[in-house]
Amino acid sequence: METIYLLFITVLAAFLGFELIRKVPATLHTPLMSGANAISGITLVGALVAAGGEDGTLTTIIGTVAVVLATVNVVGGYMVTDRMLAMFKKKAEKKSAKDA
């Protein structure tokens, strides 16, 4: 039953993902990709439980490595996406920025 329930979520999330992303314009495809990349760092959540558990040395080592890698993915991904998106401006916005 548990598996079916997870599968149910999976199917809905896949449809939702397709609908959401289809609307993103070509101009924003690179930030979309790096932003989505940051989201894929959600593996961090799985790594945390492993790194902080009591299951033994090997698990702790693998878990900690996973935490490091996933954090690079999350922090780097969001920061670089923000840096990129900050550059996307329209003409009018720029002029008012210069006037100010």
Binding site: E2, L6, T10, A14, G17, F18, I39, S40, I42
Partner: peptide, 21 residues
């Protein structure tokens, strides 16, 4: 694998975005 919903949902959003691109 670890029965975690947020991993499934977030992972699929990314998976879908990659497939569309």
């Amino acid at each position: 694998a670890i029965g975690n919903n947020i991993l499934i949902v977030a992972g699929l959003l990314v998976g879908a975005s990659g497939i569309i691109l």
